[in-house]
């Protein structure tokens, strides 16, 4: 596979390479073809939105890119590793070190403070306490919550919780961050704020973001919009 492509007079690393992926669900008697031959490449530093109506297959694509689900056919390389070569436990470890997740409903652990939620993945990676503390502080400040380290999720607004979730996703220094409808539960002020933070992290840290969304506010900010319909890529626009 190609790890680098020439793009805008610059060699960029390919973080995600999806090659002719099909996914068929056999849950009922009639098989559901969620993805029918999707091929996309996402380069380092991209700020990409995957859009499409519900049932288009965008969530399936996101799950497959994130190593949460496996394709029926086709190959996915993340950061140079082909995901189908990993067994279930290796895949869990791979996700831990390579992929940051932001979920629609934040999914913070309610009994832990914001700081502990961010630290959690680093704990799983056996990062030393000093490094964890420094990284947590840095990330919480980056998402504008440097003063809310010791608050529990219930004491934070939805927008703040989602910012903690972004900090958590970034904690293990992943190859890219995958966000499934990150703004679906947020008001417009929180959405703008969250997008500002993610755009800044993208610009300043060269962090790659991939969203699934049908929120126009997010689509407007994305620098690349991939539209999925009926399990196929309908359009792929860079701007």
């Amino acid at each position: 596979m190609k790890l680098f492509v020439k793009y805008k007079h610059d060699y960029k690393k390919i973080v995600v390479d999806v090659q002719d992926v099909h996914k068929t669900y056999q849950e009922t008697k009639v098989p559901v073809k969620a993805l029918q031959g999707v091929s996309i490449q996402i380069e380092q530093g991209e700020f990409t939105a995957i859009v499409g109506p519900s049932g288009s297959g965008k969530t399936t694509l996101l799950n497959i890119i994130g190593g949460l689900d496996r394709p029926t056919e086709g190959r996915i390389y993340v950061d140079g590793t082909e995901l189908s070569t990993l067994n279930d436990n290796q895949l869990i470890d791979f996700r831990k070190t390579h992929i940051g997740f932001v979920f629609q409903s934040y999914n913070l652990i309610p009994v832990l403070t914001a700081k502990e939620n961010v630290e959690f993945v680093m704990l799983l990676q056996n990062v030393s306490k000093d490094k964890r503390d420094a990284r947590t502080q840095e990330l919480m400040e980056a998402v504008g919550l440097g003063d809310r380290l010791h608050n529990r999720p219930a004491e934070l607004s939805g927008g703040q919780q989602q910012r903690v979730a972004v900090a958590r996703a970034l904690a293990p220094k992943p190859a890219f961050v995958l966000a499934d409808e990150p703004t679906a539960n947020l008001d417009s002020a929180s959405t703008a704020n969250l997008l500002d933070i993610m755009a800044r992290l993208n610009r300043e840290e060269n962090m790659t973001f991939v969203f699934s969304t049908h929120d126009q506010r997010v689509i407007d900010r994305a620098r690349r919009v991939i539209t999925i319909e009926d399990g196929k890529v309908l359009s792929d626009l860079r701007r």
């Binding site: 996700r95 831990k96 979920f103 959690f120 799983l124």
Partner: peptide, 8 residues
């Protein structure tokens, strides 16, 4: 979520 973010 725990399994998604890498708890085996």
């Amino acid at each position: 979520m725990l399994m998604a973010v890498g708890m085996n």
